[in-house]
């Protein structure tokens, strides 16, 4: 995470310095408020429509020792669409601020081999058992978010823009489910009553209701400007807030949404 800040800070300093300079040299103009508003939305502004493909998942920062092997990983509902606007801070269009609205899927299906993985299995009557499981865990994350990015954009060269900043997300659909199978579950503690899962036996879990509704994080990326109005972008989003509510204890480590996003955008 600190690496991201290392990039941000110079970027922010640059922006402030630049806009301060711009202020000083500005010629006094007399325009009505309405004209000013019109100018704001017409001059030095750029609109973009984007579609993205995301690959990533909810992951602990550093794999805890409980997880012995990631046996499979599959992205799910990886698509997102976004509309945004970039307001350039001066006529040189070197630095700008971008915001917009994004509707994005955040999903994955993973299978892992675990040892002493603390979890909770439950049933539809609300009965729950917590304990330590050694065996295989399948996790399905299938979320949709409304996201507002707030990004600083640096027009670095003829072909490249660099952007970074923050995003704020609200969940539109929450789903975190899975099951444990082929292993041994010890109720309560690692020496608790033993239940073995063999063959088709599964212990189900559903932590969907424990997912946080709001999260925010960092975003950093680049876009490649083609000669036409099309651009290709790639960025990384990393949440600063964990996906579960703070009182959630059924998984012993914190998990964060970490996604790589690629796609195309059209500017107009």
């Amino acid at each position: 995470m600190t690496n991201i800040y290392k990039v941000y800070i110079p970027l922010i300093i640059c922006l402030i310095w630049n806009s301060a300079n711009a202020q000083e040299t500005k010629v006094q103009e007399t325009k009505s408020n309405k004209e000013k508003i019109n100018d704001f939305f017409n001059e030095n502004i750029e609109y973009q429509a984007k579609i993205q493909l995301s690959i990533g998942g909810a992951s602990p920062l550093g794999i805890p020792a409980q997880i012995r092997e990631i046996e499979s990983f599959k992205p799910m509902n990886p698509f997102g669409i976004e509309m945004n606007a970039t307001k350039w801070l001066n006529d040189k269009q070197e630095f700008g601020i971008r915001t917009g609205i994004k509707f994005e899927g955040r999903g994955m299906k993973t299978q892992a081999r675990v040892k002493n993985y603390y979890t909770q299995i439950e049933d539809d009557s609300g009965a729950q058992t917590k304990g330590y499981f050694t065996g295989h865990v399948v996790t399905e994350l299938d979320n949709f978010y409304f996201t507002i990015p707030v990004l600083f954009v640096w027009n670095a060269s003829e072909h490249w823009n660099v952007y970074g900043g923050f995003y704020f997300s609200l969940t539109a659909n929450k789903s975190f489910t899975g099951h444990i199978y082929d292993g041994a579950f010890r109720e309560g503690t690692p020496v608790g009553e033993l239940t073995t899962f063999e063959g088709t036996a599964q212990g189900l879990y559903d932590f969907s209701d424990d997912l946080k509704t709001f999260q925010w994080g960092n975003q950093l990326g680049v876009e490649y400007k083609t000669k036409s109005d099309w651009r290709i972008f790639a960025d990384l989003t990393m949440a600063n807030t964990q996906i579960f509510k703070s009182d959630f204890e059924s998984i012993s480590f914190k998990m964060y949404n970490i996604f790589g996003n690629i796609g195309v955008s059209y500017s107009f």
């Binding site: 794999i63 020792a65 997880i67 012995r68 990631i70 499979s72 040892k115 020496v191």
Partner: peptide, 17 residues
């Protein structure tokens, strides 16, 4: 992505049975 995960797998902890 899975390779990155694989690279970060920690040493196995001792058995608790």
């Amino acid at each position: 992505i899975p390779l990155t995960f694989y690279a970060c797998i920690k040493d196995e902890e001792l058995d608790t049975d």
